[in-house]
Amino acid sequence: MAELAVAERQEIPCQVSVPWNVVFSVSWSSLRRRFFRSLITMLGVILAIAFLTYMMVQDSVVDALLEARIEALNLLLQKSGVDVLAVQGTDTMMILLISLALLTCLVGIVNAMFMSVSERIKEIGTLKCLGAEDSFIVKTYFVESSLQGVLGTTLGILIGLVVSVALCVGSYGGYVFQYFPYGAVLRAIAIALAIGSIISVLASIGPAYWASKKQPVDAMRVEE
């Protein structure tokens, strides 16, 4: 009997794995055609990263303006609440706020992705009936969630950058462009991009794995 089982095993080939470009296009079309649903998921990332970018850019600009040591500018800085004499650097309160925002964002994405998996249990079951392996499901959810994260991060950076520059110009006028700290702002953008992407990728691991464990028999349940 055991020998028979081995013989049977060898007759049936293993399922071939689906190439990454197909995974990518499936995830992309899912994102695109569920645009508003995806946008709501992304909103958490967008807001958190916008906040982070805003804080960092604001900080860099103020530092650059302080460096300039111009009397009139120092007056403007003092007027908008900057302690001109204090040692430079971001204070602990800000770091705490940013960390909280990022944590909320992480929990938000995890929650949104779990929701999105439960909404699509039947879809996952159907794909498995068609011959999808666990790895295909993991990949599509992972790619979808990461794409959402990267798109959300990019939007968040843009919004944060625009808002902080606009507010700085409002307070300090043309000095902002005269002493604009390009290097520091680029660094801030890079940090925000890295943090946003890492958070989104981390947040997608759990839901993607959970999705892949759904059974094909789940496709049979009629519940709508």
Binding site: P13, C14, Q15, K128, L130, G131, E133
Partner: peptide, 8 residues
């Protein structure tokens, strides 16, 4: 994986 092949 073989079962996935059969389903497919």
């Amino acid at each position: 994986s073989q079962m996935a092949w059969v389903r497919c």
